[in-house]
């Protein structure tokens, strides 16, 4: 039965080879941190938190178990990895400072997308990065961001920054102070300007145009563009591309939220009563129980302000000839 022995040997050889090869290949994965992404209701990030050491490169394999996700680390600009279903994206993470970092999903993967966040604990020598050196403005001002903030007055027509340019020379320079603009709502600014004796002869609409211009002067084309990008990637799915609160998920926010009506960013009565600092607070802290996520660990301070600046472009006519800007 020589041939029978040969046949048996071949069978054993084939399957032992196959399993050995597979075993070796699988063990290769041991040094790598494998992170899988699924929709939050199916588990989100696995693992949900991990540890890294300062200065030591960490090799991470990212893969998705269902739909397209994205991987980014909060407050680290310019780094984003696609996490594709069944495909592996290899990234190398190096942290220069210890602290606690948030990593999050960057691609909308369902109404609960924003819940898809994890924590990286970075240990080792160095000055802790996560400590907030200065508190955000809304905290320093002690604004109650959950309070109602109706606009005391609203403009007769949509204020236009372009229209305000011709009158800007009449405006005292105090109105251009960043601190004042960030801490007052456009309606408050309007009321102050209105009562300013130097502007007595200017019409209400013209004052509103000046208000629009004042906020425009705080920002730039580039910042508005970046703000728009941040808005469409992170906010539009609920708030709507136009900001009217009609995003694709507006009707199906999680059941545990109060389903508070999503604000209409184009509504002057609602928006013009809010100061940039208040809006910053809402973005940074999130609206407890309303389904609005907190972005404090994700956006940098600068990014938050760009978003706020972009929100004003829904109230004011911002397209403005670069040449005519002072």
């Amino acid at each position: 039965m020589k041939s029978e022995t040969l046949a048996r040997s071949i069978v054993i050889l084939v399957f032992v080879t196959l399993l050995t090869w597979l075993g070796l290949a699988a063990s290769d994965r041991m040094d790598i941190l494998n992170i899988t992404a699924s929709m939050p209701e199916r588990g989100g990030w696995q693992p949900g938190d991990f540890t890294a050491r300062v200065g030591e490169p960490l090799l991470v394999h990212l893969t998705s178990h269902d739909v397209v996700h994205g991987f980014a680390i909060g407050q680290m600009e310019g780094f984003e990895a696609e996490v594709l279903p069944g495909k592996v994206t290899e990234v190398e993470l190096v942290f220069s400072e210890p602290g606690t970092y948030t990593y999050y999903c960057t691609r909308w993967c369902g109404p609960n997308h924003w819940r898809m966040r994890g924590t990286i604990t970075v240990i080792g020598e160095g000055k802790p990065e996560a400590e907030v050196v200065t508190q955000p403005l809304y905290l320093r001002l002690g604004i109650d961001i959950d309070a109602e903030h109706p606009a005391e007055t609203i403009p007769p027509g949509k204020p236009s920054a372009q229209e305000g340019i011709g009158l800007w020379g009449m405006v005292p320079s105090t109105y251009a102070a960043e601190m004042l603009l960030r801490s007052s709502s456009p309606a408050e600014l309007f009321i102050r300007m209105r009562s300013d004796s130097g502007l007595e002869r200017v019409s209400d609409q013209a004052i509103w145009d000046l208000v629009a211009l004042a906020y425009w002067n705080l920002t730039s084309e580039a910042a508005l563009e970046e703000g728009q990008r941040l808005f469409s990637e992170n906010c539009a799915a609920c708030h709507g591309v136009s900001g009217q609160g009609d995003g694709v998920f507006s009707g199906q926010l999680g059941e545990d939220t109060h389903q508070a009506a999503i604000p209409d960013f184009t509504d002057p009565a609602r928006m013009l009563g809010a100061s940039p600092a208040l809006l910053q607070g809402k973005i940074v802290r999130g609206g407890m129980g309303t389904g609005m996520p907190y972005w404090g660990t994700i956006f940098t301070d600068e990014q938050t302000w760009m978003l706020v600046d972009y929100l004003w472009s829904m109230q004011f006519d911002y397209p403005i000839d670069e040449g005519s800007k002072e």
Partner: peptide, 26 residues
């Protein structure tokens, strides 16, 4: 094309064209 839940794409047979939409971004 507007995705209403997760990232979708659209490939058109015959014309060999495709496009991708993130939720809420037409």
């Amino acid at each position: 094309l507007t995705s209403m839940d997760v990232v979708h794409g659209l490939y058109l047979d015959g014309y060999d064209l495709s496009v991708t939409s993130d939720p809420g971004q037409t």
